[in-house]
């Protein structure tokens, strides 16, 4: 669904890149989210002090809370995974939330973005598995007894494909549906502030979806670190 007025699309049209931008709205808005995140990170880490400034304070609460939560799931050995998990959370959260600003398009409402995130996550679980178990990682796919291998192996492969699809489809479906509902309500009764309750709900949806994505990727990482069942 193309929005009536997208701020950055108009900006790119003005400098003569309109052809590129109309097919790749989510890419442009992903750059916007990246720029905001980089700016916030720079502001937070510019001069770190013992008594923090507001931006540093917010980031400290957010990052330490997430880290505590994640270590509660993975255990102490999974602390090195925190940078990937936290950047997934921050990116998805800000990407969802930016859709509430008029003239902005959430990059997570495109299947390309969410599939990329899900692919990174699921491929990285196998990297973790190989790092922790070496060549014995194949036992995760083989089941307990040797004669069950022809049954267990396809089941496991289907399960891993379902991980990619469920991660990407859930986020995409929620954000796309949110955008669609907002658009329809705005066209039907925009003058009576009909989309307003849905926008309030959108804040909640943005938080929950980002959190679910973060939590499930952390759980997949934990599953790869465990011994074969």
């Amino acid at each position: 669904m193309e929005h009536p007025y997208l701020f950055f699309v108009k900006l790119f049209e003005a400098i003569g890149l309109g052809h590129f931008v109309h097919g790749n709205v989510h890419v442009v808005y992903m750059w916007v989210v990246m720029a905001i995140l980089i700016l916030l990170g720079w502001l937070a880490g510019k001069n770190t002090q013992l008594v923090p400034e507001p931006v540093q304070n917010v980031f400290e609460v957010l990052v330490s809370g997430l880290e505590e939560f994640m270590v509660g799931i993975t255990g102490e050995e999974g602390r090195w995974l925190f940078p990937l998990a936290a950047s997934i959370f921050l990116f998805v959260f800000l990407g969802n939330l930016i859709g509430l600003v008029p003239g902005f398009f959430p990059p997570t409402a495109s299947l390309n973005t969410t599939a990329a995130l899900a692919l990174v996550t699921v491929v990285f679980t196998h990297v973790i598995g190989i790092k922790y178990h070496g060549a014995k990682y194949y036992k995760h796919f083989m089941g307990p007894v040797w004669w069950m291998v022809p049954i267990i192996l396809p089941i496991e492969l289907i399960g891993h494909a379902a991980r990619i699809l469920s991660l990407s489809f859930r986020l995409f479906g929620n954000m796309m549906g949110h955008e669609l509902v907002l658009g329809i309500l705005f066209a039907l009764a925009g003058a009576f502030f009909a989309p307003l309750p849905i926008m309030a709900l959108g804040i909640f949806v943005a938080l929950v979806q980002a959190f679910v994505f973060f939590l499930l990727s952390v759980m997949y990482f934990t599953g790869a670190m465990e011994h074969a069942h």
Partner: peptide
């Protein structure tokens, strides 16, 4: 979060 994601993964599998 874990149990709410369970149904989707069953259907997708």
């Amino acid at each position: 979060a874990y149990y709410s994601s369970l149904g989707l993964s069953v259907a997708l599998s």
